[in-house]
């Protein structure tokens, strides 16, 4: 079983890295022939960096749109971010001090993440417009994330798992020196779901994460009169 999980995670990491790497490369190599920032837009590179930071960390546009989606989305993403950082302790030895510092908040973050996901799912089910646009995969994605959160939390609140053993397993994987994974059904489930999430990431709507950085309406500088902006294929038309 330990070997199976190790192989699964090696595969998942490979698919995630290559798939995401390819997607980012694909976004980056595709030209943006016209300047189309949604205005009013920043007129400097620094301004664009700030706009992007507000978008990524504060969900500025979503805030303008709808406070319910913003609230639930913020709870989920902030919770997830904290939970991910907290999980660094399974991959570092000794544990970095700032990671150790936030350990106590990780549990609340897990709860926050679950609550956010429930909020998003309730909206998806009960708001007519959002139900209309939902595909089965939209529901499954929420189910997957919620199951990851629930299985993770249950190892904290219901049946503790041998986290020292888990840590040894992952440190071993990182050093290509396989260690046994504690035999625990909930742990197996949790890891299986996480691997599944990593595997589907590059092929699904989770691409919104790299996508936002490449969105021309958000990452372009509003300076068309000052600087000529032209894509290679468009420049060819002038020859």
């Amino acid at each position: 079983m330990s070997l199976l999980f190790a192989l699964l995670f090696y595969l998942a990491i490979l698919v995630l890295a290559l798939g995401l790497g390819y997607k980012v490369y694909d976004f980056a190599r595709t030209p943006a022939p016209l300047l189309i920032p949604t205005t009013p837009a920043p007129t400097t590179q620094g301004g664009v960096a700030l706009r992007m930071a507000r978008e990524v960390f504060l969900f500025e546009s979503l805030f303008k749109s709808n406070l319910w989606i913003w609230g639930a989305g913020m709870m989920f993403h902030a919770g997830l971010a904290l939970v991910l950082i907290r999980h660094l302790r399974y991959f570092t030895e000794p544990v970095w001090s700032w990671v150790a510092l936030i350990q106590p908040f990780g549990i609340y973050a897990g709860l926050l993440m679950g609550a956010g996901l429930c909020g998003l799912w309730i909206r998806r089910i009960f708001v007519e417009r959002i139900r209309y646009i939902s595909t089965p995969s939209d529901h499954l994605m929420l189910a997957l994330l919620l199951a990851i959160a629930a299985s993770g939390l249950s190892m904290k609140f219901i049946s503790h798992t041998d986290i020292v053993g888990v840590k040894n397993f992952f440190l071993g994987m990182m050093h290509l020196n396989l260690q046994p994974l504690p035999a625990d059904g909930v742990l197996y489930l949790h890891l299986l779901l996480v691997a599944a999430l990593m595997l589907i990431f590059p092929f699904s709507k989770l691409l919104h994460a790299p996508g936002v950085f490449f969105s021309p309406s958000r990452n372009q500088i509003d300076n068309p009169r000052e600087k000529r902006h032209i894509a290679p294929w468009a420049a060819d038309l002038e020859k």
Binding site: S61, K205, H208, G211
Partner: peptide, 15 residues
């Protein structure tokens, strides 16, 4: 790039 990113990035949030 707009078309490519926009077709990939939507999460059906409903905003």
């Amino acid at each position: 790039r707009s078309l490519k990113v926009y077709l990939d990035a939507c999460v059906h949030c409903g905003a």
